[in-house]
């Protein structure tokens, strides 16, 4: 079984208040190195065997239409395990 991973991130020009809140909380724990934090989403899609080119193309389309909103987000597809 393999896992197709889709990572979705807000585009750099879109304000990410959740990431900002995390960035503001880090120094309170003594972690002072972070210049910026951006928060995103990760989808893990399990398939039988090695994903086919057709399945990967389908995932690409699913990522474009449902998993991400291309107006504000970008995504990356990769295969793990």
């Amino acid at each position: 079984m393999a896992t197709i991973v889709v990572e979705v991130m807000l585009k750099p020009e879109i304000l990410d208040p959740q990431g900002q809140a995390v960035a503001a909380a880090l120094p309170r724990l003594g972690f002072t190195f972070a210049k910026e934090v951006r928060q995103g989403k990760r989808f893990e899609i399990s398939v039988d065997g090695t994903p086919t080119a057709e399945q990967l193309a389908d995932i690409e389309r699913a990522a474009q239409t449902l998993l991400s909103n291309p107006v504000i987000e970008s995504f990356r597809v990769k295969v793990e395990g």
Binding site: L10, D16, P17, A21, N69, I72
Partner: peptide
């Protein structure tokens, strides 16, 4: 409609 609605500034 164009654009998107995202998390409020200030959360």
């Amino acid at each position: 409609l164009p654009g998107a609605l995202t998390r409020n500034q200030g959360l």
